[in-house]
Design a protein around this nucleic acid. Structure first.
Lengths: 230, 230
DNA sequence: TCGAATTTGTGCGTATGTATC
DNA sequence: GGATACATACGCACAAATTCG
């Protein structure tokens, strides 16, 4: 009957047709919006949500070893084109939580980079990455998204300055999208998201990068592949 | 002022004190309940939630290789005592989603086991495990929680019948606790949870077990350790 | 360009159901 | 069984955003 992209009749109209108040219609729509079936646009109307294919985001030893960007590989497997926009701030004092994760003192300088990852030009995930300033200071890879190794990923960049990254630790947490995240990701405020705290460690056990990653449940499917050694 | 376990004044009382209606108090309490700060008990009152330590649930090649129960190891690291209750149904027809994950036909028989995992006798996670009936039929390890290898984990049990498990694939998804999950886990309905679809594969690529695991955000901290091979 | 009409979003208040003591 | 307290559903008013003449 209604197709993706169609606009539904207004709440007042639906309420009159069904013989209920507009409050009932609103709550019914809210439930469907939370499930991702409908999409509300303030001042405009309520629409049938576009069906978007979820991008499978894979974490495995194999994927980490790959040479290019892990995200680009994920999107390519879905037959789409992966791109991203980024902004780097060179010397930002570490907030408490980040400092603890990086094993540095609060206020120590970091290189902070914010990302917005796109699949076929539509946002799929956002992230904020932090690296201790003193690790990359003065090297060609200090700015993650500039220079010859731009977009090659943390592992490859660190290797270039003689640091061997041996493991990543990821901590996924469920949550709801706040207003800013909803705006950046083009989703509804309050939608289900997974927030991942990821930290890369070098072979001597030192944290060399940590990131906060936000993946909306409706846009990404997170897959961890854990090998079982005999 | 108020300590964990204390009962707050009733909504009507708080409403009168603050000069608002009880609806306002209710919504304020709902927000705090969602954050796990308060706990509402129908017919009884609203209480300050007990502070519960989160159990770190680790997934890594090292942990999978361990001989005992992975859960027991997780809980032991937190200095607590890990136990579990289980119930096994011997011949259950596979529902569509499970059949797809196990690579069998819909309706093929499975061994289904439901678990409730406890740390110091308090629930931490629940799960439902499915194994194709024909894999373990007639062997000593057909019932996961009976016999000599009870509680030793899927990898060890499969090894006993000559099946080498080489990898686990986990897919964590954010969600809200339904009424049944909330009851089993002793949490509030609608609380944030992570639902994990886990599947174990043998060396020939065949799925040998799949499980739906529910971890409340307030009770468990899920950690994936991904090695980065050079 | 601006303002009025329309539509969704947010907050509040009330009534009823249900569990507990 | 009655009183009390939380849970759920409903209705209403206003604010914010959008649209369009």
């Amino acid at each position: 009957m209604w197709m993706p992209g169609d606009r539904l009749p207004s709440r007042a109209q639906l309420a009159q047709e069904c013989g209920v108040t507009d409050g009932v219609v609103r709550r019914a729509q809210e439930a469907l919006i939370a499930q991702g079936v409908l999409e509300g646009r303030a001042g405009s109307g309520t629409y049938v949500a576009q069906r978007r294919e979820r991008v499978r985001i894979t974490r495995s030893p194999r994927r980490e070893r790959a040479d290019g960007s892990p995200f680009a590989a994920d999107v390519a497997e879905a037959g789409m084109r992966g791109t991203w926009e980024s902004r780097t701030d060179g010397m930002v004092p570490a907030p408490p939580g980040i400092a603890a994760r990086l094993g540095i003192a609060e206020g120590d300088y970091c290189v902070r980079t914010t990302y917005e990852f796109l699949a076929d030009d539509k946002p799929v995930q956002i992230s904020t990455s932090w690296e201790p300033y003193d690790i990359t200071a003065g090297s060609l890879v200090m700015l993650p998204e500039a220079g010859p190794l731009a977009g090659k990923g943390v592992v490859r960049r660190m290797a270039d300055i003689g640091i061997t990254v041996t493991r990543a630790v990821e901590r996924p947490e469920p949550g709801h999208a706040n207003a800013e995240e909803a705006h950046l990701l083009g989703i509804q405020r309050g939608s289900l998201v997974t927030r991942i705290q990821r930290t890369y460690y070098s072979d001597d056990g030192r944290p060399v990068e940590t990131a906060d990653i936000v993946v909306p449940a409706g846009l990404g499917e997170i897959v961890y592949e854990v090998p079982v050694s005999p």
